[in-house]
Nucleic acid binder design. Structure first.
Lengths: 329, 329
DNA sequence: CTGAAAGCGCTAACAT
DNA sequence: ATGTTAGCGCTTTCAG
């Protein structure tokens, strides 16, 4: 194995002291005479010494790294969320290991295999796969965002049910007669389904039929467009749509435009998420906004507690949402 | 120091072999009898053994980690770019360490201080700060995207000049008389400036006055809106805008709407970037598309070569752009 | 085909 | 105030 160019030992030699002393100077620990400190600093500079992080990690048995396992960062919601998680973690001295699962279970498992092997001090997860038992089998501190993983893993989520009610109420008040919803395929046990539950309960209460089109998060844009075209073919009477996320809302409006439908005159649309980037690119969209930044902050707080050894008994947390008034509904 | 629960030594003990043998089984190296292999595997399972990644990294003097230093991941361009870099790196067995600099030089330096200390095998950078000499002082393989760092660091960039020409040409052909440009503040030596150079040269060639509004990448949305409102105040005659990125283009269209200007009837707008997320949320925007995925692939290829020790003599690479026809120009 | 021993670079008891 | 020594958990020569 090739050795690192200059190490602590070399500094010690040049400064004429022991490794311990150099280590002490490095970490500001113990009693040192100013003379020694200066000598060591000088030697370090002369040699361009850079302490090896990995060696330290091995000894300390911690890396100050946190793994983020989410589908992708190329998305307004996850982009903002991960940026914010990174920010919060940075404040606390942690760096982030990216684990874009692309919703590929194989990849997610592969990431976990590595991350669980001492590579990180904790994990924040929100990927959309299920039944990955690695999560349950580990001692590593884990916090989940908008996803149920296992009962000992706390979940930070928006109040999805309330959000669903806000959205559907809005469409009802707008006088919509035929409201259609989009969501993930059934069977993916995510808090997201609460949006659907709210929709279905409200529809039932108002004696309307509920119709949900299921759209995979990781389908291509073209596949999604195909589903939405089918939606308009099969339900030409539709006059209100509650999309489970803003990008779907945008695609739906594209299809509506193709069909010559005016939003909001002919069709009202309410989205979900309200991420910063969507607000910038599509400010006209009426949407239910999740408190993304707060979710990130809360998740990091919880993770820190777990890392510090506090035994939280599945302290899951739900945060409030709010309706952003655009002009599409 | 707390010790790792179960280590290689424990497996060896249980299986009744030496550490060497267990290591060999783990890495599939050297001659092993099937009997031994089975014994060891069994012991590993019985103990739920997980090899410690950090120890291996220390010995091998490499981490199979690559650091990504960019302003933020919460942006259509950087989001897609980093997602794609992650994807390409994953294929080659590398994982990604996120380094969102937030355009904060202090933070960028702080990341570098750590990353350069053996934490990563290479770096792909595209943050917007300058004059950070750490980049020059290290032996670590580095590749840059859309940013000039130092002359030994290869740059992967789009053909920004050609992009600028495409955009301005389009506005000229549309009959615009008063074309205004937005770009970064002068003094930030980025290939992005080539867009401005193209604009200014074309304007001069057509005997028009060139007017550029300078907008910091990391200003808040409100600050940016303020600048664009000023733009319309100071230049009510404007009938064409070449924005240096799509989010600015979107904000400009918002302000135009405030002023009662119709796009494209009263004002034509061409953006820059053409990231997937922008295409989804703002498909009507005419824009110059950068080949983001190819840029990512190319950067990773270059980095891999550097890591493998090939001495590329600053093999910088420029990739072609194309005009996406929307309806805003 | 398998094992003993040295060492990757750093830290911390424990001594002095 | 400083040095000696023994690891952190793994891999790999080298010897058998």
């Amino acid at each position: 194995m090739k050795k690192q160019s200059v190490k602590l030992e070399d500094v010690a030699a040049l400064a004429g002291v022991s490794k311990t002393t150099v280590s002490r100077v490095l970490n500001n620990r113990g009693y040192l005479s100013q003379a020694t400190i200066d000598k060591v600093h000088q030697a370090m500079e002369e040699l361009h010494y850079r302490p090896n992080v990995i060696a330290r990690q091995l000894y300390q048995q911690r890396t100050k790294l946190v793994g983020l396992v989410f589908p992708t960062v190329d998305n307004p919601f996850f982009g903002q969320l991960e940026a914010r998680l990174d920010w919060e973690l940075y404040q606390r001295g942690y760096r982030v290991l990216m684990g874009n699962s692309q919703n590929n279970p194989k990849r997610e498992k592969e990431y976990l295999r590595q991350l669980l092997n001492g590579q990180v001090d904790g994990l924040i997860v929100g990927a959309h796969n299920q039944g990955i038992k690695q999560y349950r089998d580990t001692q590593l501190p884990i916090v989940s965002i908008e996803r149920w993983v296992s009962k000992d893993i706390p979940v930070v989520a928006a109040d999805n049910y309330a959000g669903g009610v806000l959205a559907v109420d809005r469409l009802l008040k707008d006088g919509c007669q035929h409201i259609i919803h989009t969501n993930y395929p059934h069977g993916l046990p995510s808090p997201n389904l609460e949006r659907r539950r709210a929709y279905e309960e409200l529809m039932q209460k108002h004696h309307r039929q509920s119709v949900t089109y299921e759209v995979n998060f990781d389908s291509s844009v073209d596949e999604k467009l195909a589903i939405f075209r089918r939606l308009f073919d099969e339900h030409p009477e539709v006059d209100g749509i509650f999309a489970d996320n803003d990008t779907n809302a945008s695609l739906i409006m594209q299809v509506a435009r193709e069909r010559g439908l005016k939003v909001p005159a002919d069709l009202k649309v309410v989205g979900f998420d309200g991420a910063n980037m969507t607000r910038t690119l599509l400010p006209e969209l009426t949407t239910v906004q999740q408190p993304i930044d707060r979710m990130a902050a809360t998740a990091v707080e919880l993770l820190q507690e777990r890392i510090n050894g506090k035994q939280i008994n599945n302290k899951s947390i739900q945060l409030p949402v709010k309706l952003i008034e655009g002009i599409t509904a």
